[in-house]
Simulated scan of single mutants.
Amino acid sequence: MDRIREYLAFVQRHPEQFVQDPIMPIVLEEEKLRAYEAETGKEVGLLFRSPWFLLAADLIRPEKGELYLYYRILKETDYDGVVILPILEGKAVLLKNYRHGPRRWELELPRGGAELGLSPAEDAVKELWEEMGTKTTELIPLGTVINDTSKVYGALHLFACHIASVGPLQEEECITGVELFTAEECRRAIVDGTIQDSLTIAALTKAMLAGIL
């Protein structure tokens, strides 16, 4: 893979992810990118591609000082993913999920990365069905958040929905159970660290502030 040509091709497909600002302009001229690599020995452009995300090294030309690299996670979609708050009989439904990142069990809401060709709402319905075998006829938008503003392009769309039951769980994704929390129990669990996932905390907080939970 030619890192720089792949990178510039991505720029052409997604110019919105490379908006220029005088405080932190991105170098997008091929000859300048190759010259920087040759002079410094540092890799520039598209470093890694997976089915879910891309890792890029942007070359930044600051107003003052020398050129430097800034690493970002990019996607072929215009949003990062979705988080869904299922509400059953007035209580939040949290999944018991073993997570590889921290290598431990977490209590989380259903969520998933953006899928090419799907809108955020379609993606949310799909994730809800896949992770907990539940269908919904109405999604309540809770707004958006950015997972990590220093590293990630694109927002996560948050939704709530009322469900009638919980179906088969996605055990192959290490989801083994559910727990139901009232709004007050959610508040206590966030404060005492029982719930630590930042995306779950964001969706629960927005729902509670909006009076949905």
Results as ranks from 00 to 15, higher is better:
V152L: 12
H162F: 12
D148L: 07
G133M: 08
T137G: 15
N147T: 08
A160T: 05
T137E: 14
G154H: 01
Y153L: 08
I146M: 01
I163V: 04
G143L: 03
L128S: 05
G133K: 14
E138F: 14
I140N: 04
I146Y: 04
Y153V: 09
K151L: 09
A155F: 15
F159C: 06
D148A: 14
V145A: 05
F159T: 13
V145W: 00
T137R: 15
H157T: 10
Y153H: 14
E130D: 00
E131P: 02
T144P: 01
K135L: 14
H162R: 14
G143M: 02
K151C: 03
F159R: 03
V152M: 06
T144C: 02
L142K: 01
F159N: 07
V145N: 11
H157V: 08
I140Y: 01
K135Q: 10
T136M: 15
L139N: 12
D148Q: 08
V145F: 05
T144Q: 05
L139D: 02
L142F: 00
L158P: 07
N147W: 00
N147G: 13
H162S: 12
E138H: 14
K135T: 05
I146T: 12
I140P: 03
T144F: 04
G154L: 09
L156T: 15
S150W: 04
K151R: 13
P141D: 09
E130N: 05
D148R: 13
A155C: 09
W129A: 07
T149H: 05
E138S: 13
G154E: 08
E131H: 11
G154D: 06
I163M: 06
L142M: 00
V152R: 11
K135C: 01
T136V: 07
K151G: 09
E138Y: 04
G143I: 04
E131S: 11
T134P: 10
T149Q: 11
N147C: 08
T149I: 04
H162T: 04
T137M: 03
W129I: 02
V152K: 08
L156K: 12
V145S: 01
T136K: 12
E131C: 10
H162C: 05
L139M: 00
N147Y: 09
K135G: 04
